[in-house]
Structure formats: C-alpha cells, structure tokens
Design a protein around this nucleic acid. Structure first.
Lengths: 192, 192
DNA sequence: GTCATCATGTAATCTGTTACATGATTTC
DNA sequence: GAAATCATGTAACAGATTACATGATGAC
C-alpha cells in the first residue's frame, strides 16, 4: 500500500501475477516451472527476472511472501496473490488499448538481407525455419492430444485457445515456407 | 581490428549492419528511418540503441565513421560498412543454428488468463486484436500494391518475401480470430 | 505567429540475460 | 562413484526503452 501500488508494472510481473491468480501458493522455482510449460510459449522470462518481479509484487502489495525453512533442500519463499493483486491483474487484462504486439523475428531479418547470401544459403535458412516450425507444431499437437485423452474438459478453457492459436499459426507458417521454397527453386542466381 | 572483431554482436547490430550492406553512407537518423519502414516490422530497436550499435560497429572495424558539419542542421556522422563488416554480416546470416525465434505475445497472455475476465471482456480483447491485425494486413497489402505499381521488379527480391510472410501471417490470425469469436459466442459464463 | 515535425543525437533508467553458487538426489 | 538434474536462489552485466535537448523549417 505504501509502495508503488497503482503504478504500471512490466509485463513479466503480470505473467507472474497471472500464474498466482490460479490460487496456489508457489515459490519462485515453482513459478518458473509453471511458466515454462504454459505461458512460456509466448512469454518466457529468465528465472532471475521472475524472482525480481516477485520482490516487486510484494513491495506493491500484490502478493504476500512466506519463508519456509527446509532441511534437505534450500529454504524457499512462497507467494500468494492478494486481493489488490487480483485487482491489478484484472485492470491489466481488460485495458482498453493494450501495448501493440512487439513481433520480432531474426529469421525474417536474415531473409530480408538475403542479397548477402547465395541462393542455396537462403534456401537452407528457410528449410531450417520450416523444420523448427514443424517441430513446434508437432509439440502443440502432442499437447492437444494429451489434453484430449487426459483432461478433455480443458478443451474448453482459455489456455486451450492459446494452443489453437499456436497450431493455426504454425500451420500457416509451414504453408508459407513451402510456397517460398518453391519460389526460390524457380529463380537462379544470388550472391555466391 | 584491435577491437572486438570476431565477437558475437547483439541482433540489433546486425540489423544496422544489414541496412548498411545496401551500400549507402547513412547517419544514425537515416538508419532509423530506413529501419522503421522495412526491417522495423520484425525488428524495431529504439533509436538510442541504433546509435549505440553504430559506435560498436566502428569499434569492431565493421563500419567507418565520418563527421559532417552542417550549418542549418545539427552536425552528423555518416557510416559506411567495411569489408570486415560485410564478412561478419555474411557469417551471421548463414549461421548454422541461429537463435530460436523468441515469440512474444501479450495478447495471448491476456487470453491465457481469461478466467480473470468476464466473457464479454475476453471477447472485447479478441476483437481489438482482430482489428489490429486487420489494420496490419491492410498496411501490408497497401505496400504490395505500391510496389506492384511503382517498382514491380521488387516483387522478386528478398524483402518482398518478408512482405508475403506478413500477409500470410495476418490472414491466418484473422481466421483464428473469427473462429475463436464464434467459439466464445457459443458458451456463456465467465467471471463477471 | 504557433504548433508540429525534421534532423540530429545523449543521458538516465530499467528490463532482461548469463554466469555463479550449493547441497541433495537420481541415474547409469 | 561420477555425472546429471533437482531445488533453490543471487550477482554481474548487457541490452533496450523513455526521457531529455535543441534549433530550423513547414503547415495552418
């Protein structure tokens, strides 16, 4: 309360707050694990950043911290979201004009500067990119299959929508790759 | 040469180097402008970062700097890529296993935490996202149209491939949005 | 004439990453 | 029994953003 309540937090803070919003008491380590296998697909902070945000959340009154002494493992701190934290999360989620998506792609950068590669090298880059996306797609499909088998009710929740996004996205990219590889096959020439 | 030649540079450095690789002598300001309307769609550094990278490139021997005194405008420094710079760029472009794409989306994060919004609010977020992507698509199509009319030979160069990517990508996202909005229409309930 | 934008950048700050630590289990 | 991984984090550093400056020109 005394602290920075009301101030805008960095996005990673909301990722952490969101994870806590499912109601469990978690350590930094727990959170990191949870993030890696879920939101991590579209927001993946370093663990030191997660710890930093936890400190910030506590300072802001959005989470409470409880120290737990352990014998066989290093001591840990467990965190719980507070009502103020839930409110702050809600406000961020429903913001009227959210930050524009900051799309970044080093692959597209390389492609853009293709004039500095031989055509074979460009082709190789596209193939590698294709393979990467194919692997991602397989992964997404695997997860979906698993849900279908083990927790089909989850097919109707919000996290699942992000999965369908990943699938649609990957499929579209693969199509583009195939078409692009065809195009590249047609024309001859380039730097090398 | 004496400096850090051979060291791995941050991605933004390669963005700048790539821009210089088209052969023109450019100022930091020029570069920023050029980036904004091209690679900026998938790699958009802050201008102060561009200036910082230019200093680094010079220190590494990848670019040379020339000061130009102006009367009516602030003085400026112009940069040219060196052969060593071209080589470094080439090495980066053709790297065998490039950094994995770091996909980030705050929209997907919000959606993932949809349980903390009412269903209407989720719907509103998806609609806003749809509108954003529709605007991007229109922009891409506009650019393509302009090329078609004013410089049709560019339809066959590498930058144009990144444009086709943007278009394919946006279209796929719009489809996903429509489908998702339908799904959301079906079920009733949610937080609020 | 006032306000926005051009044409240059620099300084201060903050976000985020990589490297460092460490003892206990599990795996082979 | 050595090597990898689990279970915790912290410290040091680098990358990136936002805020600050400033005089000239163009738009209205």
């Amino acid at each position: 309360m005394i602290e920075t309540a009301g101030t805008k937090l960095p996005t990673t803070s909301y990722a952490v707050l969101g994870m806590l919003s499912f109601g469990q008491e978690l350590s930094g380590y727990d959170l990191m694990k949870a993030i890696e296998s879920s939101v991590g697909f579209f927001w993946s902070p370093a663990k030191s950043q997660v710890y930093a945000e936890l400190r910030r959340l506590v300072a802001a009154g959005y989470a409470t911290e409880r120290e737990v002494t352990q014998e066989t493992r290093p001591d840990k701190r467990l965190y719980v979201i507070t009502p103020a934290g839930e409110e702050a999360l809600g406000a961020w989620l429903t913001e009227d004009d959210p930050e524009p998506e900051a799309f970044r792609s080093t692959f597209l950068m390389r492609l853009f500067f293709g004039h500095r590669m031989s055509q074979e090298q460009v082709t190789r880059q596209v193939r590698a990119f294709r393979a990467y996306n194919e692997a991602m797609l397989a992964r997404f499909r695997g997860i979906e299959q698993q849900i279908r088998e083990q927790a089909p009710q989850q097919l109707h929740d919000y996290p699942h929508l992000t999965l369908t996004y990943g699938i649609a996205h990957s499929e579209a990219i693969l199509d583009w790759c195939d078409q692009t590889l065809k195009e590249l096959g047609k024309k001859k020439g380039g730097k090398g």
